[in-house]
Design a protein around this nucleic acid. Structure first.
Lengths: 135, 135
DNA sequence: GTCCGTGCAAAAGCTTTGCAGCCTT
DNA sequence: AAGGCTGCAAAGCTTTTGCACGGAC
């Protein structure tokens, strides 16, 4: 997300390791609160502050990305590959989709604007299959 | 944004009219707070609650769209035409860009997924020209 | 020994909501 | 007259921050 790389001395911490692991093994683009409740049993004294602080650090490290749309609260993912998002307007779930990155759009956008573009996102809003079945 | 259309009996209100007018005559994708400070002099007793309530109603009416990325707070726009957004990572400004809507991406996404897609968004993140000049 | 990370608690920031009175219809 | 809209204030929710203690290096 952010291009600046802090050159800090990060130490190891069990909590941070687990947050990243959990993020890596889920594809549900969890919220901070969900991560908190997942790890609370493992670290009984865990606090939300630790979750947020580590999510921030993991972003600085470039290991986690923040997703800011589709909800009133942030979601996070550890899938760093290029991909776009499908967002269900009914259940608010977020799904990854791999599309061939359309370079021509990027080029055209840079051409038409005064921006130097670093990256782009695409979100598709619709209804997912389980919500369609349910209705 | 939302597909459901409430069939409520909306009355006219000077505050709501002005909020929409101000949104229509600016291209800065303002926050609720900015709208509040803009209109405070015009309506000395204006309250933030009124801004938020009316922005919600204007969205129900389909006259305003909410933009949820690029900041920690929501932004709004009354530009209902198809367009994408350029977001400056330095000053957080949002600029509209008109690109030929790439239908093929939409089709491919629908093909590759189990979603029935209603609409999509694209955000380009980069550095705007005034920030580049400044640095 | 340093100083980073944690838990705890308080605070911050944006947004929503309850309520009584006013204004549109 | 009915009930949507407003201002005011309080509450709500997510996220951030200060501080003292414990742990990584």
């Amino acid at each position: 997300m952010d291009t600046k790389q802090k050159t800090e001395n990060y130490r190891q911490s069990a909590q941070r390791d687990r947050i990243l692991e959990v993020l890596k093994t889920t594809n549900s683009h969890p919220t901070a609160d969900w991560l908190y409740s997942q790890l609370k049993s493992e670290f009984p004294k865990l606090s939300p502050g630790t979750i947020y602080r580590n999510l921030g650090i993991l972003q600085e490290m470039g290991k986690v990305k923040k997703i800011q749309y589709g909800s009133t609260f942030d979601r996070f993912e550890a899938n760093l590959s290029d991909h776009y998002h499908l967002i269900c307007e009914s259940c608010n779930s977020i799904t990854d989709i791999n599309l061939p990155a359309c370079k021509d759009i990027l080029n055209k956008a840079e051409e038409l604007s005064d921006f130097s573009i670093n990256y782009h996102q695409i979100e598709f809003y619709g209804i997912c299959i389980s919500c369609r079945r349910a209705s």
